[in-house]
């Protein structure tokens, strides 16, 4: 790993922490404020790619584990890793990796804006929502013994908000690709 990769990982981890510190943001057309931090998985994968994106999340989780309140709402500490939602935390790493992997395959600089946007959206949906929910619900099902299916049904309520976040993350990732492309130079 080059020093530049190390720095990009740390800077992106700082961005993820920052997204948890700022107050929730309201969108013009929807009255409910959204927490920005949960977009981080999609942003990390789409902007700095699979390996660096996943490592940025490893770093954030490490910081959380050693007692820094790096998650939104000032949450942190080992307790989160011991709770029933720990699977989602593991899902962030895998989700950022899968998002990045798909973005690296689906998007390149020569494509039209439309195709880039579509590529980022697919990557965000599969990696940022699909993989994160899979990990989260597998753990939840294991902890509770209620079965994977029922766990999934329980988390459906969060899907609309996450689709919206995937949309915002897609547009942001595409704008960053235009302004300062990092994805093509894989780690």
């Amino acid at each position: 790993m080059t020093t530049r990769d190390l720095v990009l990982i740390a800077l992106f981890a700082a961005i993820i922490v920052f997204l948890g510190i700022i107050p929730p943001i309201t969108l013009g057309f929807i009255p409910v404020p959204i927490t920005a931090q949960s977009m981080g998985v999609m942003l990390a994968g789409c902007i700095i790619g699979a390996k660096r994106g996943a490592l940025a999340y490893v770093l954030v989780i490490l910081m959380m584990a050693i007692g820094l309140p790096v998650l939104s709402g000032g949450r942190g500490g080992l307790a989160i890793l011991a709770g029933p939602t720990a699977g989602f935390i593991a899902g962030w790493v895998a989700g950022a990796y899968v998002t990045g992997l798909l973005a690296e395959r689906l998007v390149n600089e020569a494509q039209s804006g439309m195709r880039q946007t579509a590529g980022f959206f697919i990557a965000s949906l599969i990696g940022g929502i699909g993989v994160v929910y899979l990990f989260g619900n597998l753990w939840l099902a294991f902890v509770t013994g209620i079965g994977l299916e029922k766990a999934f049904v329980g988390s459906l309520a969060f899907i609309p908000g996450d689709l919206l976040k995937a949309g915002i993350a897609t547009l942001a990732a595409r704008a960053v690709l235009v302004g300062y492309p990092l994805l093509p130079q894989r780690a």
């Binding site: 961005i15 943001i25 969108l27 013009g28 959204i34 920005a36 942003l43 902007i47 915002i168 547009l171 942001a172 704008a175 960053v176 302004g179 300062y180």
Partner: peptide, 11 residues
């Protein structure tokens, strides 16, 4: 707006 805030910030 989130986009006009985050994009310049990330770049």
């Amino acid at each position: 707006r989130p986009l006009t805030l985050f994009v310049p910030l990330i770049i």
